[in-house]
Nucleic acid binder design. Structure first.
Lengths: 152, 152
DNA sequence: GGATCGAATGAGATATTGTATCTTATAGGG
DNA sequence: CCCTATAAGATACAATATCTCATTCGATCC
C-alpha cells in the first residue's frame, strides 16, 4: 500500500482542483476541456478516447470528433490531470491532480475495473534498476493485469 | 541489472530453442511459425504485427495477412517465445524462451531501441503490492519509457 | 472600429492496430 | 485411406490514433 495519504477529491471539488491545476500551468480551462474532464471523471473504468468522445457528444448535444478528445487528453496527461493506462489504451482521471507520482494500476481482466496505488519504494526501485542499466527513466509504466477482490 | 545470468541464444540456436520450447508445449512448429519467429527475432526493435506481416510476406514471397500473424504472436506470447510491449503495441522475441520472468522493458523514446532486464525483487514487490491491495496479479506490465545510453 | 495574430477547436480523411468469421489446406491418428 | 483437429487464408470490419487544413474566438495593436 502507498504509505501516504491524499485528499481525494470527488465531484465538484475534483473538477475545481483540475481547473485550478490546469490554470496554474498557464493553460485555459475551456468548456470543451471541462466537458472532457467531467466525462472522464464519471467513468468508473478506464475510458477510451472514443468512449469519451461519445459521452461528451451527448453532454454537449453535438458531435465531437475523436481528434479533439485526443488533443485534450494529451494535455491532461502532460499536466497530470489524467493518466493513460497503456495496457488498456484508455484513460482515467487523476483523483489528486496536484500530486505527482509514478502510479501503479491494477486492472481487473474480468470486470475492467481499475484501481491505482502509489508505492514510491517500488517506483524508485524501477527507476534505479533502469539507471543501473544505463537508461534514463522518464516515465515508468507499471500496470498489473489480474483479478480484483470482488471478482474472486 | 538482473542478478542472474541466462544463456542468451542467438541466430540459429535461438530458433532451435524456440522450436524446442513450442514442441514441448505440444504445439506444432510450422513453416509459418518459423517464419514469424525468425522475422521477429531479426528486428532490433519491437515490431508491430503489421511490420512482421510485411517481413514474413517478403521472406515467403507471398502475402501474409495480419490476422495470421496475430494468431501466431498470441501463441508465442502464451508460450513465452515472445513478449508484448504494451506501451508500444509491439512484440519482441524472447531471447531465453525456456525461462519465465516478469520482465522489465526499457524503451528509448528517441531511437525506439528496447532492452529488457529481469529483477525478481522488483517484480515480486509489484505482485506483493497488488496482493496487499486485495488484487490477484496475473501479469505485471513493467515498462520504462525514457532515453537509452547511446541517445544521451 | 478594423487588422492581425495565436490558441483552441472542427471536419474529415487516413493510418494503424486488432478481431471475427468463414473457408480451405494439411498433418496425424484410427 | 478416411476422419478429425489444427493451421492458415481471405475478407470484412471494428477500434484506436494521427494528419492536414479550415474555422472560430479572444486578445492586442494600430
Amino acid at each position: 500500500m502507498g504509505a501516504h495519504h491524499h485528499h481525494l477529491h470527488e465531484g465538484e471539488s475534483l473538477r475545481e482542483a483540475a481547473e485550478h491545476q490546469l490554470k496554474a500551468r498557464g493553460e485555459q480551462w475551456t468548456e470543451m476541456r471541462a466537458a472532457v474532464f467531467e466525462a472522464l471523471a464519471e467513468f468508473d473504468k478506464p475510458a477510451s478516447a472514443y468512449d469519451i468522445a461519445e459521452a461528451v457528444s451527448k453532454r454537449l448535444d453535438r458531435r465531437i470528433a475523436a481528434n479533439s478528445v485526443y488533443r485534450i487528453l494529451d494535455l491532461f496527461v502532460t499536466t497530470n490531470l489524467a493518466m493513460r493506462v497503456e495496457s488498456a489504451n484508455a484513460y482515467v482521471a487523476n483523483a489528486h491532480p496536484g500530486c505527482l507520482h509514478d502510479c501503479i494500476f491494477l486492472i481487473c481482466d474480468t470486470c475492467g475495473t481499475t484501481s491505482h496505488i502509489d508505492n514510491d519504494k517500488l517506483s524508485t526501485g524501477v527507476r534505479d534498476a533502469a539507471a543501473a542499466a544505463g537508461f534514463e527513466a522518464v516515465r515508468p509504466v507499471i500496470e498489473v493485469r489480474g483479478k480484483c477482490g470482488t471478482c474472486d
